[in-house]
Design a protein around this nucleic acid. Structure first.
Length: 894
RNA sequence: GGGCGGUUAGCUCAGUUGGUUAGAGCGUUGCGUUGACAUCGCAAAGGUCGUAGGUUCGAGUCCUAUACCGCCCACCA
């Protein structure tokens, strides 16, 4: 009965590439603009051009493609806009490495212009790899709108944004303490610094007072910074040191005089209670220095060797200097002790080298005026963060935000549109390259050498990709976007900045929902990295198990915002699911082949037909509800369960029987088989696009070819990717009845199988049985065919009695080939228990409904905030629905 | 120092308006294959839902405390 033109196992290799090319060529990925409908839009988080596919990419593609396909199927104009990021530091490093390897030249040797040209060349050559890989994942994004953060349009947007912020006074240039990456020789922002707990040493030494033998004991973890000290601070109420305040002490070795000052910041309990102040190389000291008007002494070169201010140590590496100065101080009798100490070491997020705080002239964005509106849109719900707990993290960060250092001493990126005048030294910031100074008219101007932090351009992504600052049709049609889907690790880096920039430049929130997925880790919960050797290559996984299996796994194995410890075993299980779909499809195709013409009179549906439709209808409702709440994982798992455990394991087995009954029944059964398979494929398509499209196409083709009028309601669309999403219908009373009735039949079948298994009867052997059915005698009598088939009973020797004579104490004796099944579960006792429980639930629902009705009728609805009232209303509605459902179940129970 | 997450079967994880007997995959045990599928079917074993209290007719789910693991934020040298 099966269609042997299909292979027995689903061969995804043959299918995936072909289908992707076909979808693309048919233009399905491009939105159909329809001004009457609000579109659904996702801006893809642009992967780095240097990137190689990892599971994080697979995760976001799976998630965003799911949402995209879902909305497309609902008939909404849907745009998923792809692109890539120039990734300043990462790309520059990569090209530098390449240059060094192949031509043994550094970027300095070939010069800025040539280097940037080489990087573009590199980008043209390798930049397409990552987007090619995204295609393999099935990403149904609109490639005709693909953007790159450094292309002309986006560069214009970046410049416009910079100039506007500068003109508003929100961008300024200044000399402050920043994080310096000595290896990269550039400033980095606070966010790009990670602190790791490491074993270090706490050095305690003597700070000698000028003109006396007295000294102040001071502790530090970085002795080399002693050379940059400009004060020693003590707590104003510290009796030990009070008399020294205002005195002068001498920097060890250098003998530079510095004051002893008082500041309440100093913790009397910690260390010696006296603090050396290095405003040039420590954030806390910097602030104290500002408070007291202390001078700043920088002792480091940009490469973290000591500079001329370090006196005799000039030229030494920072760590060599640390050892040397300590030795010299020992010789001078200035040391007290060293002890092991655990400290927080600031390291660069990229490369991991130790970052040095130092004072430098950089460009900054003033954040306070931008953060306030960004806080408000989340506070008042105009932007919703899923899962909700991250709103707290978001608030906490924005409330304590500090100005953002946006200049980078790199060559690859958006060059800062500011020109320095050699004559009047003033700065000209302009939208188009100026040829003279705006202040004095001098032509001796030179552009600032720095480029912008990559995240500056990323922050504009949702609107810059649509044409901003021009008022383009795309911008009008697709902005604001709908959902921002990304990993929670870049909530600050990217999401918060997009919200701030979006509000600042467009006056609108750039998206209404932020959906944050978890991070991908290995089986033991560690981060994945090539150096750790625990890197799982998605391409390899896809080769082995198929894209659908990987996607379905990623989408259903976790919950929003929670990390995933990847287990390849589970990907395999999902490969098996794809195969299950495929084979169920083969069976249905066989049924379609056998179904004759549509009969004149359709037979009424069987109990099994009614049951599976009821289950399907419940599934569609449930999936709809879960999608509303972004619970895609749970929805996927439920579809999986339904398809495998109910449709395939039960209904299709029964359908095989029904197909043999009569031509009319065969036709009607084939119709149910097709319709339910069709609905499942629709529901699954956003998760597993390839196998569903392929199979759906086969079924559609077979049905159309047979002209047997086997078709979903509304007919067959041209492709599953643009087929209608199943609509949920209200539960009917018949559905409730069918589920209860069929549930009883299932229980009996399971019980008989159970007994057989316990008694060791081979499954293939037909045996006699006596079933005591209690009140359900008629029901079972009607389905004795099913019973005997699914439980492998001899139909001739199956007795269904209302009540068997006294059930033997020694349970269920199996005389050779005879079973007596007593089924308390389906008997009256349990109906009573179930009824009691339902009554209890109904009573509770009733009191809650009454309470809410009273509340909502009173002054509450006028006094409480609108959203609270709305929430209560929704709760009431839900309760009413629940009550209805309960009543239905109760009635069905009789 | 502040905040968040996790703790559920041997393993990896689901379980969001509190509600029947707490689920899945993998693994384990027994049985089964000529007609969709061994990438399969049937059955079974396996859980004091971290711990202790509390709210409730009813708690894995809500509240309080606490232990362990992990993460984020934070200027203790």
């Amino acid at each position: 009965m099966s269609d042997f033109s299909l292979p027995k196992t689903y061969d995804f290799h043959a299918v995936e590439q072909r289908l992707y090319a076909w979808w693309d060529s048919q233009g399905y990925f491009r939105p159909k603009v329809d001004p009457s409908q609000r579109p659904f839009v996702i801006s893809m988080p642009p992967p780095n051009v240097t990137g190689e596919l990892h599971l994080g990419h697979a995760m976001f593609v799976a998630m965003e493609d799911l949402m995209t396909r879902y909305h497309r199927m609902r008939g909404v104009p849907t745009l998923w806009l792809p692109g890539s990021d120039h990734a300043g530091i990462a790309t520059q490093l990569q090209v530098e490495k390449e240059l060094l390897r192949t031509e043994e030249v550094t970027r300095e040797e070939i010069g800025r212009e040539a280097f940037v040209a080489r990087t573009w060349e590199w980008k043209r050559k390798y930049g397409g790899i990552i987007t090619q890989q995204l295609r393999r994942l099935g990403a149904s994004c609109d490639w005709s709108r693909e953007r790159f953060t450094l292309d002309d349009g986006l560069s214009r947007a970046v410049r416009e944004a910079f100039v506007r912020l500068y003109e508003k006074g929100l961008i300024y240039r200044g000399t402050y303490l920043i994080n310096w990456s000595p290896g990269l020789r550039t400033a980095v922002s606070d966010l790009e610094v990670e602190y790791s707990e490491e074993q270090g040493t706490l050095y305690t030494f003597k700070y000698p007072l000028a003109g006396s033998d007295e000294f102040i004991p001071v502790a530090t973890t970085r002795p080399e910074t002693i050379l940059g000290d400009t004060a020693v601070a003590v707590h104003p109420e510290d009796e030990r040191y009070r008399h020294l305040i205002g005195k002068t002490c001498l920097v060890p070795i250098l003998n530079r005089p510095i004051p002893v000052i008082e500041d309440a910041y100093v913790d009397r309990e910690f260390g010696t209670g006296a603090l050396k102040i290095t405003p040039g190389h420590d954030p806390a000291d910097y602030e104290i220095g500002q408070r007291h008007g202390l001078p700043i002494v920088n002792v480091l070169h940009p490469d973290a060797t000591m500079n001329e201010n370090a006196g005799p140590y000039a030229g030494l590496d920072r760590y060599d200097c640390r050892e040397r100065i300590w030795k010299d101080m020992q010789t001078a009798g200035l040391t007290i002790r060293t002890e092991p100490y655990t400290m927080q070491v600031p390291r660069s997020q990229r490369g991991g080298e130790i970052v040095e705080p130092l004072v430098s002239t950089q460009w900054f964005v003033r954040m306070k005026p931008l953060s306030e509106p960004a806080l408000n849109v989340v506070r008042d719900g105009r932007i919703r963060i899923v899962p909700e707990r991250f709103t707290k993290v978001y608030f906490n960060w924005l409330e304590n935000i500090r100005d953002w250092c946006i200049s980078r001493q790199l060559w690859w990126g958006h060059r800062i549109p500011a020109w320095h005048c050699a004559d009047c030294t003033k700065i000209t910031v302009a939208r188009t390259d100026p040829d003279r100074c705006a202040h004095c008219g001098s032509s001796r101007i030179e552009q600032d050498p720095d480029v912008l932090d990559t995240w500056f351009s990323s922050g504009l992504w949702p609107f810059s990709t649509l044409g901003w600052p021009e008022d383009t049709p795309d911008l009008r049609a697709f902005y604001p976007t709908s959902v921002m889907e990304t990993g929670y690790d870049i909530l600050f880096f990217w999401v918060a900045r997009m919200i701030m920039m979006g509000l600042e430049f467009t006056g609108r929130e750039p998206f209404h929902t932020v959906y944050l997925h978890g991070l991908i880790r290995d089986e033991r919960g560690r981060k994945m990295s090539k150096t750790l050797g625990n890197f799982i290559d998605p391409l390899v996984v896809m080769d082995e198990f198929g894209t659908d299996a990987l996607r379905f796994y990623l989408l259903t194995s976790s919950t929003p915002g929670n990390d995933i410890n990847v287990s390849v075993d589970r990907v395999e299980a999902n490969r098996n699911f794809a195969n299950k779909l495929w084979n169920a499809g083969r069976l249905v195709l066989g049924a379609v082949e056998r179904a004759g013409a549509q009969p004149d009179r359709q037979p009424p549906p069987t109990l099994a037909d009614r049951w599976i439709r009821a289950r399907l209808s419940a599934l569609v409702r449930e999936v709809g509800r879960l999608f509303e709440g972004y619970q895609f994982g749970e929805a996927g798992r439920q579809i999986y369960e339904f398809f495998w455990a109910e449709y395939a394991d039960w209904y299709l087995e029964i359908a095989k029987l029904q197909l043999d009954e009569s031509p009319e029944r065969a036709w009607s059964t084939a119709k149910h088989m097709v319709e339910i398979l069709d609905t499942c494929l629709r529901l699954l398509h956003p998760y597993t696009p390839f196998v569903t499209e392929e199979l759906w196409g086969k079924v559609r083709g077979a049905c159309l070819a047979r002209q047997a009028r086997l078709q979903p309601e509304g007919g067959w669309e041209e492709a599953l990717i643009v087929a209608r999403w199943p609509e949920a219908a209200e539960a009917t009373e018949d559905e409730a009845v069918a589920q209860v009735s069929f549930g009883k039949v299932m229980d009996i079948i399971k019980a008989i199988r159970n007994v057989r298994s316990e008694k060791g009867v081979e499954p293939s052997r037909r045996i006699a049985a006596e079933v005591s059915a209690g009140a359900d005698q008629a029901l079972l009598e009607e389905h004795r065919g099913l019973l005997s088939h699914l439980a492998r009973l001899d139909p001739q020797r199956l007795t269904i009695a209302g009540r068997l004579p006294a059930p033997p104490k020694e349970a269920l004796p199996l005389v050779v080939g005879t079973i007596e099944v007593y089924l308390p579960l389906t008997g009256m006792v349990d109906v009573v228990a179930e009824g009691k429980r339902l009554d209890g639930e109904m009573a509770q629902a009733a009191t809650q409904i009454a309470r809410l009705e009273e509340l909502l009728a009173g002054p509450f609805k006028d006094r409480a905030p609108a959203d609270v009232v709305a929430k209560e209303r929704a709760k009431l509605e839900a309760l009413r629905a629940t009550r209805q459902k309960l009543e239905m179940n109760r009635k069905a129970l009789g």
